[in-house]
């Protein structure tokens, strides 16, 4: 793990409400290149809202996203992608009735003669990307809706990787997957970290979180309650925090106290 000092992305004082429900309350977070940051929390803790704002799919009410030395009040999906933030959504955001290649290249199709989509290049590139990620899909002209859950996930991942960002966000990457397929995804996450990308993973699977992450961000009721180094935390502490215990309670109950936690 090689953490750079300058964060790849900084989220500052982010708030977001849906009607009178506060989904995010004053959330601040830094994500570094070359690390896997896991975001954990109960249902409705605000994890998905947070990453949707990062990905530009939602706009925040307050707060900034700081990338490099530029600060943004909000991002559009296109802007987020061009700034190097790629996302694999929980619902995968695939067009089921289109083929694999069309989905991987959705929004950035290669063209020739100025306006004609270069389908042959798409097929070739798609095959190359999928092979690089060790994702097996029998035919690239298959409609995505006909693929298995894991294969669909593979297509969504391939698209995010093809977008070639510095930050890649996974919302529940292995939720719909079998053991073998999730092992592959985990391998992929580790590989992306090695390549120096900042990886954000939302997961309910604490075993997995402890297996792969460098830091764990715990969210509860729309707030970040703790950001801990994985190596210095115990699963029980994290469970306590997720359940809404204060940092001190959680760590006392687990028998240790870490200064790393906020």
């Amino acid at each position: 793990m090689s953490q750079s000092i300058e964060p790849a992305i900084k989220i500052v004082h982010m708030s977001k409400s849906f009607g009178n429900i506060e989904a995010l309350r004053d959330v601040s977070l830094e994500i570094y290149s070359g690390e896997i940051l896991a975001i954990v929390g109960d249902n409705g803790a605000g994890k998905s809202t947070l990453i949707k704002i990062l990905a530009g799919a939602l706009t925040s009410d307050e707060g900034q996203i700081i990338i490099g030395d530029k600060s943004y009040n909000f991002l559009s999906p296109g802007r987020a992608i061009s700034l190097g933030i790629s996302t694999v959504y929980q619902d995968l955001a695939l067009v089921d009735c289109r083929d694999v290649a069309s989905n991987i290249f959705l929004g950035r199709e290669p063209v020739y003669a100025g306006f004609l989509v270069d389908r042959r290049k798409m097929q070739k590139e798609a095959a190359r990307i999928l092979e690089g990620l060790q994702i097996n899909i029998p035919s690239l002209s298959t409609q995505v809706g006909l693929l298995s859950g894991g294969q669909r996930q593979g297509v969504a991942v391939a698209r995010a990787v093809y977008q070639g960002g510095k930050v890649i966000i996974f919302d529940e990457p292995t939720a719909a997957m079998g053991l073998q397929e999730s092992a592959k995804v985990i391998k992929l996450l580790l590989k992306l970290r090695e390549e120096g990308m900042a990886v954000i993973v939302i997961s309910h699977n604490l075993n997995q979180v402890f297996e792969i992450s460098d830091r764990i961000c715990v969210m509860c009721h729309g707030q970040v309650v703790a950001i801990c180094k994985t190596k210095e935390s115990l699963p029980n502490q994290i469970v306590g925090l997720i359940m809404g215990a204060t940092v001190k309670e959680a760590y006392n109950a687990a028998g240790v106290y870490s200064d790393e936690a906020i």
Binding site: A55, G56, A57, S76, P77, G78, R79, A80, I81, S82, T87, Y89, A93, L94, V95, D96, C97, R98, S102, L106, G107, R108, E109, V111, F115, L116, V117, R119, R159
Partner: peptide, 25 residues
């Protein structure tokens, strides 16, 4: 069949939200 406009026409019918999140206008 051969242009972005055509691709996005079909994607709009298939999953408009996916198209939006891909950064397409």
């Amino acid at each position: 069949n051969q242009t972005k406009l055509g691709n996005y026409t079909l994607a709009l019918g298939g999953n408009e939200e996916a198209l939006r999140r891909s950064g397409v206008a």
